[in-house]
């Protein structure tokens, strides 16, 4: 909520599977120039990337089949800002517990996540979540077969935790991830923070 003018660098939403349209719509509603990313050449055109909610095993497989996984890793190493929600957080983590056989990660966040940590869909829930770095009301956070962050490295900033202390939102440099889905109910503050990060990275290039 820096209140500055919305930056205009182009950002991508990984569109292999999941709720990528909701991310794209939310980003556009706060003034971003958005493209859907399914191919390496589309990745080349963006200054930041959102990895949506969905099924992480499917996105991982399709990312490898269609040659996106390595280019995304290379861009992350080169400093590209990335924001992942739910499945996106899983894909960004260094380590996954309860992963599917052969599931790989992008290794962008020095954290360990547990996939599907709350149990089946019947344990999925929504809750008012305090995010100390945000002004205003708590975030209405929707957790859908969500992961939690079980370990954070020394350089990782914890953005939010549940009342019992379990970590559900983190950032490390230009990378941010949430266990829940701000895109689902039009919560713009995480996406604004992401766009600010993209603008800063873009300006320093």
């Amino acid at each position: 909520m820096a209140g500055n003018q919305t930056p205009k660098a182009r950002v991508g939403v990984l569109a292999l599977q999941g709720d990528f349209r909701e991310h794209a719509a939310l980003l556009r509603s706060i003034g971003a120039d958005v493209v859907l990313v399914r191919r390496p050449e589309e990745l080349d055109s963006v200054s930041g990337l959102v990895i949506p909610g969905g099924e992480s095993t499917v996105m991982d497989k399709l990312g490898h089949i269609f040659g996106l996984a390595e280019p995304i890793r290379a861009r992350i190493r080169a400093g590209m800002p990335v924001f992942g929600t739910c499945a996106g957080l899983i894909m960004l983590a260094d380590e996954i517990l309860d992963a599917a056989a052969g599931q790989q990660t992008l290794g962008a966040l020095d954290i360990t996540v547990r996939r599907n940590a709350f149990g089946s869909q019947q344990a999925s829930f929504e809750v008012a979540l305090e995010v100390p770095s945000f002004d205003g009301a708590p975030v209405v956070a929707v957790f859908i077969r969500a992961p939690i962050v079980e370990r954070v490295g020394p350089d990782v900033e914890v953005l939010a935790a549940l009342a019992d202390g379990r970590i559900v939102a983190v950032a490390q440099g230009p990378i941010m991830g949430t266990s829940f889905h701000p895109e689902m109910n039009g919560e713009p503050r995480f996406h604004r923070r992401f766009l600010d990060t993209v603008a800063a990275a873009h300006a320093s290039e």
């Binding site: 999941g18 349209r21 099924e55 499945a87 829930f125 689902m184």
Partner: peptide
């Protein structure tokens, strides 16, 4: 998490949103 709500319409419909494109 005191105020957590399971089985809400948003949680039920939201899960299907995650299956899209699949």
């Amino acid at each position: 998490t005191a105020a957590a709500q399971v089985g809400s319409t948003r949680v039920k419909r939201g899960f299907a949103e995650m299956l899209k494109g699949g």
